[in-house]
């Protein structure tokens, strides 16, 4: 899984028939230590009701997508499976939502 930022969304009406009903978001990985964006922006299915600007957990395995959505027919790639409140790297806590645990 990777930490990523939701930077937008994608609307697509003509697509694989397994994908109807799922929200497509634009995500961008970033380096947790520096926060610098990494790699190209990619499309991910949203399974955590994330919105633009959220820091999220992206699961990169298709099989996990089938489990997350409990849907065996659709073939998933990247799936947003969590919205991050804060994360800690080398003792430094990055707070996104709410107060960090003391």
């Amino acid at each position: 899984m990777r930490l990523a930022k939701v930077v937008g969304n994608v609307i697509s009406t003509v697509k694989d028939d397994g994908y109807y009903g799922y929200k497509l978001m634009l995500v961008e990985y970033f380096d947790p230590e520096t926060g610098a964006p990494q790699g190209p922006r990619m499309i991910a299915f949203d399974c955590a009701d994330s919105g633009v600007g959220d820091t999220v957990i992206v699961n990169t395995d298709g099989g996990a997508g089938n489990m997350l959505f409990d849907d065996e027919y659709a073939i998933f790639d990247l799936v947003i499976c969590g919205v991050v409140d804060n994360y800690t790297v080398d003792g430094e806590t990055h707070v996104i939502h709410g107060a960090a645990e003391s």
Partner: peptide, 26 residues
């Protein structure tokens, strides 16, 4: 390979949808 849903087709990239709107807000 799985998206064709007839066993595993030996492809590594498959087109699965068309982009109507591409919103990059950040």
């Amino acid at each position: 390979a799985r998206i064709f849903r007839r066993g595993n087709i030996p492809v590594d990239v498959a087109i699965v949808g068309f982009i109507d709107t591409y919103n990059e807000e950040i």
